[in-house]
Design a protein around this nucleic acid. Structure first.
Lengths: 251, 251
DNA sequence: TTTATTTATTTTGTATACAATTTTTTTATT
DNA sequence: AATAAAAAAATTGTATACAAAATAAATAAA
């Protein structure tokens, strides 16, 4: 299926409108696919295949994959290819700790700097989140649930920190797919609402405490004990793999 | 000076040793050059030129530039090229605020997790810093001064936060070149030493306070009022530029 | 039948070629 | 001489070509 359709590449000018950074479009597309969990962790991201899908050459795909890799959503193994990241339990804890630290600072700043319009936007975000939850629209829920945190970061008025939050939120999404115990918690919306109330009331202490509790609740819903089961079938059935045998022999 | 030496590209196998990720080598080289302020903010980074310098094609250079751009050390203007970033005063404040938040958390964690070996490493870093300062080795000082913060981040045991600190430290370096008022402060070493003492003593409160003061001292040495003077000569001499005249006419 | 070894195929890494865009230089006009 | 317009040169963006590596398949040996 490799070089069968060079026509697609030449017909790339589908929408002659905003041709600027077609690059960005592919990035957004792939970012969303991963964020909304339509692309499972571990999925191989073949350059050729993606190039055909988006009607561009590998050159462009490569740029996008490198960008995603720098955001830790994709992992590139040299000479092996790019894969959707499979965060380890340790990495999961790291990400949540980092979020705790950064979002605590953000919420603090949001208490000081928020306008009435900001509060309205936050409420709108949570309302949409609630709708998606009721409708069982998992993809929308994941996106909107993260959107709340992104909006907050924007309100805090620090683009650098906002970029970090965006990265951490998307990584959290990957973590949830891998380690969530039961089904989604419908309480997340309420927690978001409580945080908004604290911000609006100007209660910095409460806002920080609520944010901390919110992230802790998220972590509590994860089963971070379970180790990865990739190719560990042998160890599970207590049978030494041929390779392990060979290795032991060479010691 | 463009395509005069295609021989360099063919002679790329200078050191046949660790060929793995020659990419990384070029990245390190450029990162250091920017960090140690051998490459001034605003410098154009031509793909062709860099390709010849490092004996590789533009493909490889491009990858490196994109990586640096994602770390905000380099800025890419579409169709115009890549330039060493020139952080604005607003961006400078953002970076220092972000550092304050993140490094406060890091130092807190370092107080809890540090080993005796960690303290030794920190002391060694500061000692080297002091030497470079006495010898007037500016490049070494910049590198070592940042190294203290990187080491601290490593001790805190969160790779994600450590990566952010690395990014922020290098951006700070760019900020210092652009906005430092007088000459370097020799007190920075002492501040680092004080932080180490607080960590060793297990005094979380003191460590956090000292870190905050340290970053504040850094900010105080900057002149963030001064706006950029790029092409604003006309406004400085209160003379309308021809272009502005033309623009006004079209309104 | 299972394991090793070899061969073929696929996939990534890098260089090069060409198109699109920007910048510089040259030429023409006021 | 100064400005505007046009042409030339240089630079970036993207596609393709080829080399190196890894994976898959096929063949040979135990």
């Amino acid at each position: 299926m490799s070089r069968t359709a060079p026509t697609a590449a030449s017909t790339q000018r589908e929408t002659p409108s905003r041709k600027m950074s077609q690059n960005d479009h592919i990035y957004d597309e792939m970012f969303s696919a991963i964020l909304e969990q339509r692309l499972a962790p571990g999925t191989k991201l073949s350059e050729d295949t993606l190039g055909e899908i988006f009607g561009v050459s590998r050159t462009v795909i490569r740029t996008v994959l490198q960008r995603l890799a720098h955001e830790r959503i994709v992992q590139i193994h040299p000479n092996r290819g790019a894969f959707v990241s499979e965060p380890s339990p340790e990495e999961a804890k790291e990400v949540l700790r980092a979020r705790g630290l950064i979002e605590e600072g953000i919420v603090r700043e949001a208490v000081r700097r928020h306008s009435q319009a900001d509060i309205a936007e936050l409420r709108r975000s949570v309302a949409a989140e609630r709708v998606s939850l009721n409708e069982g629209d998992h993809e929308a829920w994941v996106r909107l649930s993260g959107n709340f945190h992104l909006t907050l970061a924007k309100i805090a008025g620090n683009q650098t920190l906002a970029a970090y939050v965006k990265e951490l939120v998307s990584r959290t999404s990957l973590i949830i797919v891998q380690y969530q115990k039961g089904n989604l918690s419908p309480c997340s919306c309420d927690e978001h609402t409580d945080i908004i109330k604290a911000i609006e009331a100007g209660d910095e202490g409460a806002a920080v405490t609520l944010m901390r509790a919110h992230l802790q609740a998220c972590e509590d819903q994860l089963n971070l004990q379970e180790r990865e089961v990739k190719g560990d079938l042998y160890s599970i059935f207590a049978k030494p793999s041929p390779k392990a045998e060979k290795l032991r022999g060479s010691l």
